[in-house]
Simulated assay, not measured.
Amino acid sequence: MIALIVVVVIIAIIAFVVIGAYNRLVALDQSADQAFADIDVQLKQRNDLIPNLVETVKGYASHEAGTLAAVTQARAAAAGATSVNDKVATDNMMTAALGKLFAVAEAYPDLKANTNFLELQRELSDIENKLAAARRFFNNAVSEFNAVRAQFPTVLFAGMFGFGSEKPFFEVDAADRAAMTAAPPSVKF
């Protein structure tokens, strides 16, 4: 009789551990998915702002067609991205294209003083700040999910529950990382 009670208690403990591990994985998976959805919202807002920005710059810098086309192409690619890796790649492409667009704007003092351009630039800066915060939140959620998924005893059950692989981080690609480690631009007056 005591042996039966011990077996039942051991089975109950194992069941609680398994149920707890599953529930924790589900909660962390949902948290990461929500964080990715927040990134999606910010990327959509940025993509919706791009045509207005391009049209404003077009009026002042119509002969900068290559830069404007690169921004438009990056926006189109971003609209079709679905996976984390695709969104990272198109986000990096958009950031580079916008950097070139703002470099072009520097050559046109009238454009830099245009209130519409300044407002669009301010809105884009605000969205970029929100996007950076959303990326940090997503990467934190992914880090927590991946850590719990790899911990004992969860690692024993993760594959059975459909959580067999790590989630990818939203991170800068190698080319952008190399550009960040290059010498900073010099400012001269």
Rank of each mutant, 00 (worst) to 15 (best):
I10H: 08
A15C: 03
F16P: 01
F16M: 13
F16Q: 11
V17Q: 14
V18A: 06
A21G: 11
A21T: 10
Y22W: 05
R24L: 09
L25A: 08
V26Q: 02
V26T: 08
L28D: 01
L28S: 03
L28W: 00
D29N: 10
Q30R: 12
D33Q: 07
A37N: 13
A37I: 08
I39L: 05
V41H: 03
V41P: 01
Q42H: 02
Q45W: 04
Q45R: 15
N47F: 06
S62E: 14
H63I: 00
E64M: 01
G66Q: 14
G66A: 13
G66S: 15
T67K: 02
T67H: 05
L68C: 11
L68W: 08
A69F: 09
A70H: 04
V71E: 01
T72L: 02
T72Q: 13
A74D: 03
A74M: 04
A79T: 14
A81Q: 09
T82A: 14
T82Y: 01
V84K: 02
V84R: 01
N85D: 15
N85Y: 07
T90M: 07
T90D: 09
D91R: 03
N92L: 02
M93F: 09
T95W: 04
T95E: 12
T95C: 03
A96D: 13
A96T: 14
A96Y: 05
A97W: 06
A97C: 09
L98A: 04
G99R: 14
F102A: 02
A105K: 01
A107Q: 14
Y108G: 08
P109R: 05
D110K: 14
L118W: 01
L120C: 07
Q121E: 13
Q121L: 06
R122V: 07
S125M: 00
D126H: 13
D126K: 10
I127N: 12
E128L: 08
L131F: 06
L131D: 04
A132Q: 11
A132P: 00
A132D: 08
R136E: 06
F138C: 00
F145V: 00
N146C: 04
V148Y: 10
Q151V: 03
P153L: 13
P153Y: 11
T154A: 13
T154G: 04
L156N: 08
L156Y: 14
G162A: 05
G162P: 05
F163Q: 01
S165F: 06
S165T: 14
K167A: 01
E171F: 01
A174M: 08
A175Q: 14
D176V: 09
A179F: 11
M180Y: 10
M180A: 15
T181Y: 05
P184M: 09
P184F: 03
P185S: 09
S186E: 15
S186Y: 02
V187A: 14
K188L: 10
